[in-house]
Design a protein around this nucleic acid. Structure first.
Ligand SMILES: [Mn+2]
Ligand SMILES: [Mn+2]
Ligand SMILES: [Mn+2]
Ligand SMILES: [Mn+2]
Lengths: 146, 146
DNA sequence: AACACTTCTTAGCCTAGACTAACTTTCGGA
DNA sequence: TCCGAAAGTTAGTCTAGGCTAAGAAGTGTT
């Protein structure tokens, strides 16, 4: 059993602080990932479709996209969809790589595809680079080439 | 490569909706888990210590604990610490079991203990029961009895 | 018993992220 | 061409979760 003893207050605080940082980035990651997916698969990424796929109102998308624009990740051409800046494209690629790795890993470890997709949607934002490396190593040791 | 094709809008929306639900529960889980740990290890759980260990101001703890009280998880005796209700105790036990499982699993998969603790702090809130079952199975197949 | 220190609360502020309702703008088909 | 449906924006509201600054309330030590 781990956690026999409490970590120091400083260590524990640092963990929670970093975790809250990851939480704050999660929305941006999910949005740019979705926008990139839509651009690739559908040719365009409309705010309406984001709303539908995020399970959120259009007004929420407008507000969120506003923040993404403010943060230099997204550009909009009203009535002709959303686009990613260079930074947005890079973040989307990173998010997608992470997402796919986590999904493959969860499946390799015994999860069904549906649950893997569900859980990955949250877990992806909290897996450090070290964790991703470990996941990748695990997959390659299994000869997983999915 | 997974995600060759997009999920249906409904499926994808359901995932994000459930993920947001998990996010909303995360703070409560972390607080009651910490309170339980402090009660067990230190004999009492003071708001100051929570603030220190959560990496947050005391005012934030007051506000958050207020919500936990409203939600029937915590009771307070001013100047003598925080206590868990039956519901709070149950949630804490669940959270701790999940936390420890995730940590052990991440270590088994190749992570160092420090990173495992860090990542578990976020991942624990997004691992479904199915995932936890898979993690446990993985550990037992490895003969892991940590 | 008094006072300093610690603990806790209050007040006031902020941002993200969500909602509904109402409105405006554009697009496409008749 | 024009007009209804679709797309998008705006306004107003809410909660969670943060913060600082200031003050109140216990606690313990002398
Ligand atoms: Mn996600
Ligand atoms: Mn994702
Ligand atoms: Mn946690
Ligand atoms: Mn935890």
């Amino acid at each position: 059993m781990p956690r026999r003893t409490l970590p120091t207050a400083e260590d524990q605080a640092a963990r929670f602080v970093r975790q809250r940082e990851a939480d704050r980035k999660a929305t941006a990651e999910d949005y740019v990932e979705l926008i990139a997916d839509l651009l690739r698969e559908e040719g365009e990424a409309r705010a309406v479709d984001l709303a539908r796929r995020m399970g959120v109102s259009q007004a929420t998308v407008t507000a969120t996209v506003g923040r993404l624009q403010r943060d230099g990740l997204v550009e909009t051409k009203p009535y002709r969809g959303l686009f990613l800046t260079a930074a947005g494209t890079a973040l989307a690629a990173e998010a997608k790589a992470r997402h796919d790795l986590v999904v493959r890993f969860l499946i390799a470890v015994g999860l069904d595809a549906g649950t893997a997709e569900q859980d990955a949607e949250g877990i992806e934002h909290h897996a450090s680079d070290k964790a991703l490396t470990a996941f990748a190593r695990f997959l390659s040791e299994r000869g997983d080439t999915t």
